[in-house]
Amino acid sequence: MTTYIPAITLPHSVFLNPAASILLPIGLGTAVGFGTRPSKTQKTYLDLKQPPLHPRPWIFGPVWTVLYGLMGYAAHRAAFNGLSPVSSPQTIQTTRHSMTVYSIQLGLNLIWMPLFFVAKRPVEATADLVALLGLNGYLAYLWGSIDPVAGWCQVPYLAWLSFATYLSAGAGYLNDWNLQDKEDGKKVEKKQQN
């Protein structure tokens, strides 16, 4: 079991304030989404060969907003209940540890979009999702031992991460794990037609 690492963990005050805990992941996710230029990201998504069951691009924004809010709410519940003055030393230690795990998984979550759409690295993006699945499964376990509601709040996120892993791996495989030439190939194709 790793431990509480203050240098890479969001401050306690973020977790203990319900609005901050919920709005922080929503705000960071929105910033990353807009930072990767949504129109370009959507065009790249539509240009890729996609696995069956892939959703329309407009689905991702609302789904991630709900999931970020839910994970922020779960983080608040776990911290509020686990760091209360009546909590046992073991529960406090587990809570602090879970805050480090949460902070790491949030960072991994936020780098997926730049990895896949900006750096065009589907292998690394898919590995990132696999790591996220493992960390969030562990986080659901930790939070479930602190506050069952917080643990159950992770279930929709785990389900979506599983689906996202399928989409990322499927798109990577169907595009020969190379997204670099997708945009360039379209430009060359257009030049040849003119």
Results as ranks from 00 to 15, higher is better:
residue 26 I to T: 03
residue 139 L to Q: 05
residue 50 Q to D: 11
residue 15 F to D: 06
residue 137 G to C: 07
residue 176 D to Q: 09
residue 144 G to K: 01
residue 105 Q to S: 10
residue 121 R to E: 13
residue 28 L to A: 09
residue 127 A to R: 00
residue 174 L to G: 11
residue 61 G to A: 15
residue 140 A to D: 08
residue 192 Q to M: 09
residue 40 K to I: 00
residue 75 A to N: 08
residue 6 P to N: 05
residue 147 D to L: 06
residue 4 Y to R: 02
residue 151 G to E: 15
residue 126 T to F: 08
residue 55 P to E: 14
residue 7 A to N: 06
residue 79 A to Q: 05
residue 26 I to S: 02
residue 19 A to P: 14
residue 145 S to D: 12
residue 105 Q to A: 02
residue 173 Y to C: 09
residue 148 P to E: 14
residue 43 K to Q: 15
residue 69 G to S: 01
residue 101 V to S: 13
residue 138 Y to Q: 12
residue 150 A to I: 04
residue 141 Y to P: 12
residue 11 P to W: 07
residue 129 L to R: 10
residue 161 L to D: 14
residue 109 N to S: 03
residue 88 S to Q: 09
residue 29 G to A: 04
residue 35 G to V: 00
residue 7 A to E: 13
residue 168 S to F: 05
residue 81 N to I: 06
residue 75 A to F: 02
residue 19 A to C: 04
residue 127 A to I: 07
residue 136 N to T: 07
residue 185 G to M: 05
residue 193 Q to Y: 11
residue 118 V to F: 11
residue 1 M to L: 14
residue 15 F to S: 15
residue 170 G to F: 01
residue 46 L to S: 12
residue 15 F to I: 10
residue 26 I to F: 02
residue 1 M to S: 10
residue 114 P to C: 13
residue 6 P to C: 01
residue 76 H to N: 14
residue 168 S to R: 07
residue 180 Q to P: 08
residue 66 V to R: 04
residue 143 W to S: 08
residue 151 G to Y: 04
residue 62 P to L: 01
residue 191 K to Q: 10
residue 82 G to M: 13
residue 74 A to M: 00
residue 90 Q to M: 05
residue 14 V to A: 07
residue 106 L to A: 12
residue 119 A to G: 13
residue 92 I to Y: 15
residue 56 R to L: 07
residue 66 V to L: 15
